[in-house]
Each structure stands twice: as structure tokens, then as C-alpha cells.
């Protein structure tokens, strides 16, 4: 039951690998779709800006391969944002696997920009498998300045000046706006739910 971590050459790859190590979950880095053939599921990590990360996914064939991907796919932070259709941040097209666009967050009176720190998960979708064993109000670690407004594919939310899509799902494709690999026991449970789904 191996997980391939798509090598986006962004900086949170080591953290994601170590989080899977702590769960004793087999995993490997895959630079190209061919390298990931043996994997049963995929994680798309990412931090930084959307434009360069999308260019990297196009260059190594991932952007095309993910259009027809049937295996479970989990995007993390920028990796989740790239699952959507369009980013205001780099004014660029994204993977388009989940309907919706990424826009700049305006926290207003809630605090400074970007949204950085431990915030609560709320508004759970019924039967979202990644949320098994978790309760509304538990906290995870967010670091982002752009966001996706809640829509039909939102399965968990948080609030920072606006309602924010914290987790989204469209069929086999899911994403976390926060960093499960850096979110203590709550994040570890979400990753465990992904790598060891209930039968």
C-alpha cells in the first residue's frame, strides 16, 4: 500500500515524508508519472507560489497525467490549491480537478495577512473518510494568503475574515489547505485516514 509523493521541488516535501515515516506508511518520491506506476495513492505537496509550481507539473508530465488519474490523490496546501481551476495569485490555470478558483484572502479585522497558525476545523461533510475519528473544533496548522471560498466540494471549513475551504473532495481527489504533516495528532489522523482507508 505505497504512496507516491509527487516531487514538486517545493519545500515541504521532507515534512510530508517524515510524517508518513512516523505512520510507518511506505512511500517514495516520484518526479514523473512513470515513476509512480507502482503507487496505490498520490500526495501532491506544495508551498510557495502557484505559477512556478504549475510550470513544474507541466514540465514533468504530471499536469497531463493527473487529468485521468483514478487513484486516491491528496493535495496539501498549495498542492490542494492546484487541484482547482484558476489562481488569482499567479493569474494562471490550475489542474482543474475540482471546480472553483483560488483568490486572495482579505482577513479584515480578523488579523494580519497571511493566515498563519492553528485554526479550527468546522462544517464537516457527513461521511468524509479523511475526517474519520475527528471532531469539529479541532485545530490544524494553516499558512496561506490565498484561499478557496466554500462550495459544493468543500468538506471542512475554517474562518479567518472569511469562510475558507479547509478540505475539499471531488471523487478520488481531495485536498487540505492546512499542513496535516505539521498539525500534531489531528493532522496525523488525517494522513492515516488517507494511507490506511477503512475497508
Amino acid at each position: 500500500m505505497t504512496t507516491a509523493i509527487i516531487d514538486t521541488s517545493t519545500a515541504n516535501i521532507a515534512s510530508v515524508r517524515y510524517a508518513l515515516e512516523r505512520l510507518d506508511a511506505p512511500h517514495f518520491l516520484a518526479s514523473t508519472p512513470d515513476e509512480a506506476v507502482s503507487a496505490e495513492r498520490l500526495i501532491l505537496p506544495g508551498v510557495g507560489a502557484a505559477g512556478p509550481a504549475m510550470a513544474a507539473l507541466r514540465a514533468n508530465g504530471w499536469a497531463e497525467a493527473l487529468q485521468n488519474e483514478a487513484r486516491p490523490l491528496l493535495g496539501v496546501c498549495l498542492g490542494m490549491q492546484m487541484l482547482f481551476e484558476w489562481s488569482e495569485e499567479s493569474d494562471c490555470a490550475l489542474l482543474g480537478l475540482i471546480p472553483g478558483k483560488v483568490q486572495r484572502l482579505d482577513p479584515g479585522e480578523a488579523g494580519p495577512w497571511p493566515h498563519m497558525g492553528w485554526n479550527t476545523l468546522t462544517d464537516f461533510a457527513v461521511d468524509e473518510p479523511l475526517l474519520a475519528g475527528l471532531n469539529e473544533g479541532e485545530r490544524v496548522y494553516f499558512v496561506h494568503g490565498f484561499f478557496i471560498a466554500p462550495g459544493a466540494n468543500t468538506v471542512a471549513q475554517t474562518r479567518y475574515g472569511a469562510q475558507i475551504t479547509a478540505m475539499a473532495r471531488n471523487g478520488n481527489v481531495a485536498g487540505c489547505q492546512f499542513h496535516p504533516e505539521r498539525s500534531g495528532s489531528v493532522g496525523a489522523r488525517i494522513l492515516k485516514n488517507f494511507v490506511e482507508p477503512a475497508a
Binding site: 510524517a19 496548522y141 493532522g187
Partner: peptide, 11 residues
């Protein structure tokens, strides 16, 4: 840095 990153699950 790597030893710390392996050991902890907070930022």
C-alpha cells in the same frame, strides 16, 4: 534540522 523534522509534528 533533519533530525528535528523527523521527530516532531508541529511547525
Amino acid at each position: 534540522v533533519g533530525r528535528v523534522a523527523r521527530a516532531i509534528d508541529i511547525p
